[in-house]
Design a protein around this nucleic acid. Sequence first.
DNA 1: CAGACTTATATAAGATACTTATGGATCACG
DNA 2: CGTGATCCATAAGTATCTTATATAAGTCTG
Lengths: 160, 160
Amino acid sequence: MTSKQRADANTDLDVDDLTRAIENFNRYYIRLPAVQKLSFTTLSVLDTLAYGGPKRLTELARTEQISQPGLTQLVTRLERDGLVERHPDPADGRAVLVHVTGSGRRIGQARREDRGRHLLPLIAQLTPAEQQAIAAALPALTRLAELGTEAGTAGPEAGR
Amino acid sequence: MTSKQRADANTDLDVDDLTRAIENFNRYYIRLPAVQKLSFTTLSVLDTLAYGGPKRLTELARTEQISQPGLTQLVTRLERDGLVERHPDPADGRAVLVHVTGSGRRIGQARREDRGRHLLPLIAQLTPAEQQAIAAALPALTRLAELGTEAGTAGPEAGR
DNA sequence: CAGACTTATATAAGATACTTATGGATCACG
DNA sequence: CGTGATCCATAAGTATCTTATATAAGTCTG
C-alpha cells in the first residue's frame, strides 16, 4: 500500500501518484457544467473530431470504445442536429468520413470555456508556486497524451 | 484565439492552457482499459464513496449529476452485485447511507492499477525533466480538486 | 476478370440505464 | 400534533447502447 519503489525520489514520477491525482481531479472536473445536456460519448466524439480532424466511422468506434452500429446511430443523431456531416471518402467507396461542423466545434469550445470559468476562482486560491508547478507540467502532460494516442493508433493491440 | 492575458508569463497559469491539456490527456486516459465493463457513472460512484466515505443517496445524486431515482436504481444494482451496502442513518430515519464494500473498493483500485500499467511505458519515454515537472504538479492538482469539491459541496449553487 | 473473401457502413431487435411523475415515510417547526 | 419539507422508492416512458445480420465496395487469386 504505502511502500512504493522509485529509482530516485526526486527524479522519478510514481505512476500510482499520477493516476490517483488525475482521478481525484477528474472526479471533480468531469461533471463541472451541465449547460448543455449532452452525453459523455457525444462530447468525446465531437472533441476527437475537432482535435484530430475527419475520421472514418470504424476508426471512431474504436477510439470511442463503442460498437460500430452504436456509433452509426450516434453520428446519425449528430448529423440530424447539424453537429457533424458525413462525406464520402474519395479514396474508398465504402467508407464515410465524419466531419465536425462549426456548430459541433463550438459546443466543445463552449464547454471548455465554461469549465475554465469554474476553475479560474479556484486557481486564484492556489499559491503562485502551485500555479507555476501546474503550468510547468502541462507540456509534459500533453506529450504523455500524444504518446498514448500514437501508440494506441499504431499498435496492433493484443485483444479486447 | 491566440492573445491571452497573463499578469506574468512566468508565474501565472493560463486556464485555457490547463483545460486544453487536461482534455487532451483525458481523451486518451479515460478510455484506457475495458477490463471490466462498468459504466462511467458506476465507476464514479464507487470512486466517490471510496474516496469520500459513506454518503446519502441525495448527496450522491447531486455530485454525480444524475436524478435521484436514477441513483436509487444504480445503488440497487450495485447492492445486488455486492459493491455497496445500504445502512440506515442513525441520525435521520428517512436517510440511507451508502457504503462501499471491499469488492467495490477493489474495482476502482484495479482500474487505477490497470491504467497505471498502460501509462508506465509511456512515462518511461518522457525525459527526466518532464517526469519531474509532472511529479511536481501533482500536489497542486490534488489541492485544486479539493478546492473544487469543497466549494461545490458548500455552495448553494446558482441553478442548473 | 470471375469468384471468394474481407472490410465499411447500415438496419433491426432487444437490453440497459437513464428520465419525469408520483407516493409513502420521517423530520422540523409553530 | 398537524402542516410543510425532505428523503427515498416505485412506475412508466424514453434514449442510447448492445448483438446479429444485411448490403455494398474493395482486394486478392488463379
